[in-house]
Amino acid sequence: MLEHVAAILRRMGARVINSVWRLGLATRFFFLTLLYSGTCFRRPHLVIKEIFSAGVLSLIIILVSGLFVGMVLGLQGYETLQTYGSEEALGILVALSLVRELGPVVAALLFASRAGSAMTAEIGLMKATEQISALEMMAVDPIARVVAPRFWGGVISMPLLAALFSAMGIFGGYLVGVVLIGVDEGAFWSQMQAAVDFRDDILNGVIKSAVFGGVVTVIALYEGYDAPPTAEGVSRATTRTVVSSSLAILAWDFVLTSFMFRGAS
C-alpha cells in the first residue's frame, strides 16, 4: 500500500521536475532567439517569408471565424439585452468583448492550431531530415536563420490577425444586430464609440495579441526543435504545441488582463 503511494508521489515528482526542466529550457531557447535576432533585421526578407506562412495562410480561418463569432455575439447579446430593454448597448457588448478578450484570445487559439502546429511539424521534420544539422555544418546558425525569423513573423502577424478578427466580428455583430434585427444603427455605433477607449481597450488588445503571438511561436518552435527526430516524435510534439500553447494563451490572458484592466472599468 505504502509503496503504491510512494510510487504515485514519485511519478508526480518526476513529472513536476520534468515540466520545470522543460520550462527552463524553453526560456533559455527564447532568450537565445532574441539574442540571435540580428540577422532578421539585416535581412527582412527572411521575416517577410515567415509572415506569409504564419499570417497570410491563417487569414481565411481568422476572417471566417471572426465573422461567425461576431454574428453569434450579436444574436446572443441581443437576446439578453432585450430582456432589459437596452438593445442599444449591443454595439458596446460586441465591441468590448471582441476587442478586449475574444479577438486576441480566439485569434491566438486559432493561430496556435493553424500556424503553431505547422511550425512545430516543419522544424521537427527539418531536424529529422538533418536539415538543421546541415545548417550547422554550413556554418549557419539555425537559431538565427530558421528560428528567429519564424518568431518575429509570429509576433508581427498575431496583432494584425487579432485586429482583423475583431473588425470582422464587429462587422458580423453589425450584420445581425443592425441589418437583420433592426437595432438602431446610430445607437449601435455611437454607444460603442463612447464605451470603447483606444488606449485602454484597443491598444491593450494589441499588446495582448503580440504577447500571445510570441508565446505561441516560442512554444511551437521549441517543441519542434526539441522533438525526437521520428514520425511519432514529431506528431507528439505537434499535439503538445497545440495543447500547451492553448493553455499558455489562457494563463497569460489572465495575467495580462489583471494588470491592464485593474480598476479601469
Binding site: E130, S133, A134, E136, M137, M138, A139
Partner: peptide, 17 residues
C-alpha cells in the same frame, strides 16, 4: 569559420525542402 571550409554530405541529402 572552420566549417565554412568543410562540406558535408548527409545520408539522405538533407536538402532544404
Amino acid at each position: 569559420r572552420l566549417r565554412r571550409r568543410m562540406g558535408m554530405l548527409f545520408q539522405f541529402g538533407a536538402l532544404f525542402t
